[in-house]
């Protein structure tokens, strides 16, 4: 007798039957998402692991299932450790993060503070200010590509400000190209910080602020003792989102400079893209990608555990 038959014969209590029904429905409802995640994690990871141990390339004339004929053990992983271009790309990515995220945070916080109470025109200004983050990043990249041309509007504005003709070739100078790329990132993502921080700022209770004002607290004191502690979680979330996204930076940057001049603005995603499509050394790319995935996974699990332990809603 199977369990199903036993169950049919037994008079079940409605509550138990209902819980059972709920569990089965829950399982069925989550199944499609589970399958999609499996589909994009298990196969790709196994394939990536497999070809990362070989010299396989789409140009090698072998189908990838035969990649084991080009087995090279852990040579790719040894190469990753000694790949200077990879480490410089990582360094550049870190630099973009270290400059853009704090600037975006401070600008976003300043704007959010200005929007904390109501004033005429607030809704219109708000809609304008959040526009950049909705512009397709590739299109934003093209906007800034045009702006930073040597005969373009940025130099035009600088010329009229300085009173002399400025013809800087922004995107062909290694330092200036990096600066231009950062400006574009700050333009596009400060609104995100603004949006998130404003949502947090609005949640600060007005009566506490009023009481503090009556007690003679300065704006800075109020900010530090009332606003900041309440916004801690929100600030962490906002910074985490931007750090994650900054690490992936590709679209705007690639359209503006293509990683150039030379490799001056080559970030980690741009580097992987180039060796994927130009050098076509896929076995090696797979090794790099796996190392990155591994490091990020460990970081992610660690961060989640920490958050769960602190009992903060993530």
């Amino acid at each position: 007798m199977t369990t199903a038959e036993i169950r049919k014969d037994m008079p079940t209590r409605p509550a138990a039957r209902e819980a059972d029904e709920g569990a089965r429905l829950g399982l069925r409802l989550t199944l499609p998402a589970q399958l999609l995640v499996l589909f994009i994690s298990v196969f790709p990871l196994l394939m990536q692991l497999y070809i990362s141990l070989t010299d396989w390339s789409p140009l090698s004339g072998l189908g990838w299932p035969h990649a084991h004929e080009m087995w090279n053990g852990f040579a790719n992983y040894v190469d990753v450790a000694g790949d200077g271009r990879l480490w410089s790309a990582l360094g550049r990515t870190a630099l973009v993060m270290a400059v853009c995220v704090p600037v975006e945070f401070l600008l976003g916080l300043a704007l959010a503070t200005l929007f904390a109470d109501s004033f005429p025109g607030k809704r219109v200004f708000y809609s304008i200010l959040i526009m950049p983050m909705m512009v397709v990043p590739a299109v934003a990249g093209y906007m800034f590509y045009m702006l930073f041309q040597s005969g373009g509007p940025v130099n035009d504005i600088l010329s009229s400000l300085l009173g002399m003709p400025v013809t800087v070739a922004w995107l062909s100078d290694p330092m200036l190209a990096m600066l231009a790329v950062m400006v574009a990132d700050i333009w596009q993502w400060t609104p995100l910080m603004f949006l998130i921080l404003l949502a947090g700022l609005v949640g600060v209770p007005e009566d506490q602020m009023k009481a503090a004002t009556l007690l003679g607290a300065s704006p800075w004191q109020k900010f530090r003792t009332i606003v900041l502690p309440r916004m801690k979680t929100i600030i962490i979330i906002a910074l985490a989102i931007r750090v994650i996204e900054c690490f992936k930076i590709f679209d705007t940057l690639f359209i503006m400079t293509g990683g150039g001049p030379g490799v001056a603005t080559e970030t980690i995603s741009v580097y992987i893209y180039k060796i994927t499509t130009q050098d076509l050394i896929w076995g090696y790319v797979a090794a790099i990608a796996l190392v990155i995935l591994l490091v990020l996974s460990v970081a992610c699990v660690w961060a989640m555990k920490r958050m769960a332990r602190k009992g903060q809603p993530a």
Partner: peptide, 18 residues
């Protein structure tokens, strides 16, 4: 958790097998 990780990873790092 799997979905948060999916959001975290740079797409570039899984594009070869994809």
């Amino acid at each position: 958790l799997a979905l948060i990780q999916l959001r975290l990873f740079p797409p570039m790092a899984v594009m070869i097998p994809v």
